[in-house]
Nucleic acid binder design. Structure first.
Lengths: 130, 130
DNA sequence: CTTGACACTCCAGCTACAGGAGAGTTTACG
DNA sequence: CGTAAACTCTCCTGTAGCTGGAGTGTCAAG
């Protein structure tokens, strides 16, 4: 199939699929006219990548996971290691965003948001202790 | 003061300060030798930006907030509007990451992580329902 | 034979910087 | 006074993961 069809079937934009080829995540041979053509196996790979991305794996992770996916003999420990690192990254980011949300949420609550100039948000950014 | 000193005092790397100048967040006049020089007012601005960034505001937000900061007559409602949008962004991102963490966490728990090849993580990425 | 839907290859831009090269300036030490 | 360290400058590249657009080519239908 060509890129338009695999795009529809995988749910990934054609641009994204070309990008994955650019960075070496997949390879796609060309027809005589220069068009990429894809097999069902490529479709499996792309949906695999899409799933992994939706779980927060980076493209670097995807590269590793694809290798493990295609190695039927790999140890589940190898997969779990990658997943645990990704999980740790997610949790670090979550902690960071959560503390931002908490601090900003408190400020927003305390800001009247009316026509008056007094504003605890600006005060805080300007460095006042409150 | 020069960039090294304001860097120390603001806690921002010199690279970052130059970058803020590049994108027009601050402006800094030059001495005869071409070196940037900064005032205490610039220091206020930079710490303001640093605070805003740590609360999750984008540089675009910072640009707006700095304008509001310098306008003593602005309405607190104007500030709150920016803050609410930022908060909404944070919450969308948090929701996304949280659902990723939940899904990945479940998979990791179910993966033995030993020498055997069976792996629910790979199975899930490959599209199996479990 | 032309129109429209595809496909292709660059190149640029997004966010918010960081790293490094190569060059000039200032400062401290001997 | 010389020099070496420390500081500063500009410019270019890279990061992550695409997305948009320009300009061009291919192919099937009418």
């Amino acid at each position: 199939m060509r890129i338009g069809e695999i795009s529809k079937r995988s749910g990934l934009p054609a641009k994204t699929i070309r990008h994955y080829e650019d960075v070496g995540l997949i390879r796609s041979p060309r027809s005589e006219n220069g068009y990429r053509f894809f097999t069902d196996n490529d479709l499996h790979k792309l949906t695999f990548i899409a799933q992994a991305r939706s779980l927060g794996f980076t493209l670097g992770d995807c590269r590793i996971l694809l290798g493990l996916y295609e190695d039927r003999q790999r140890a589940s420990g190898d997969v779990k290691r990658v997943a645990l690192e990704s999980l740790a990254r997610l949790e670090r980011k979550l902690d960071e965003l959560e503390s931002m949300r908490a601090a900003l949420g408190r400020l927003v609550e305390r800001c009247h948001g009316d026509d008056r100039p007094e504003c605890p948000i600006i005060d805080r950014l300007a460095g006042s202790s409150g």
